[in-house]
């Protein structure tokens, strides 16, 4: 918005708690802030709460207490706020979750038409550009099940970008992929980071963290154990738990 001073933080998370019905305390007084254009990588063992944290950011999971503010909009019970936040936050899932009954083209166009209320021509143009951006313009008229895993995930990224989000969340976007396809998806993500997209990425790909991340957060038992640059994690991790975890995944 013009005239207003640019907000420093686009994501502000203040002491959030989340307990699942099974009694698992997934997030414990979790706080963090993300700057505009910042790329944050979240690592941690499975069950550490990193996916839950990500899913709380767009309201996929309800928090028990604390506050989440995205680009100045509080994530509360107000439906308008929630819708606004869902439009501002794009999400990419581990299992792609493409719509199997729609073509690649329709997958990417759907939300532009329904949510952003774009005209058909505009939406088509944007979709063509997005498909070029993720490197598969020739697959526009295919159905998701005709694509490889890597291609599907790239379509999913294009679909999330189509609503022009200010923040992109990646929930283990490469974990379900065959090894030879991880590279192509990471490449798209790296390009996105270089273009200045604000990103929160849950991943085990330390190469990605080293190359593009501004900050790495190591989580365990719903808390931040350690955070710093990727370089810090590679050369000089402080906590014993961090060292143990890194020795296991590197």
């Amino acid at each position: 918005m013009q005239g207003q001073p640019e907000r420093e933080y686009i994501i502000e998370v203040e002491k959030i708690n989340k307990t699942f019905s099974g009694g698992v305390h997934a997030l414990v007084d979790f706080s963090t802030k993300v700057r505009k254009r910042e790329v944050v990588v979240v690592i941690g063992p499975s069950g550490s709460g990193k996916s839950t944290f990500l899913r709380c950011l767009n309201g996929l999971e309800e928090i028990d207490s604390g506050s989440i503010v995205i680009d100045g909009i509080p994530l509360d019970d107000n439906k308008k706020h929630r819708l606004e936040i869902r439009k501002e936050v794009g999400m990419v899932f581990q299992l792609f979750n493409l719509f199997p009954h729609l073509t690649v083209f329709e997958n990417i166009t759907l939300a532009q038409r329904l949510v952003r209320k774009k005209k058909k021509e505009e939406a088509m143009e944007m979709t063509v550009n997005l498909l070029k951006k993720v490197g598969i313009p020739e697959k526009a008229n295919n159905f998701p099940n005709q694509l490889s895993g890597g291609q599907q995930q790239r379509v999913a990224i294009a679909r999330a970008l189509a609503i022009m989000p200010k923040v992109m969340l990646f929930d283990e976007a490469t974990s379900a992929l065959d090894p030879e396809m991880i590279g192509e998806v990471l490449e798209v993500m790296k390009n996105l980071a270089r273009e200045g997209m604000t990103m929160v990425v849950v991943t085990h790909e330390m190469g990605f963290a080293r190359e593009v991340s501004d900050r790495v957060i190591f989580m365990d038992f719903g808390r931040i154990v350690e955070e710093g640059t990727a370089e810090h994690f590679f050369t000089n991790p402080q906590e014993e738990r961090t060292k143990l975890f890194l020795s296991q995944i590197l």
Partner: peptide
Amino acid sequence: EASYGLGL
């Protein structure tokens, strides 16, 4: 979840 995330 995917359609929710897209703002539908």
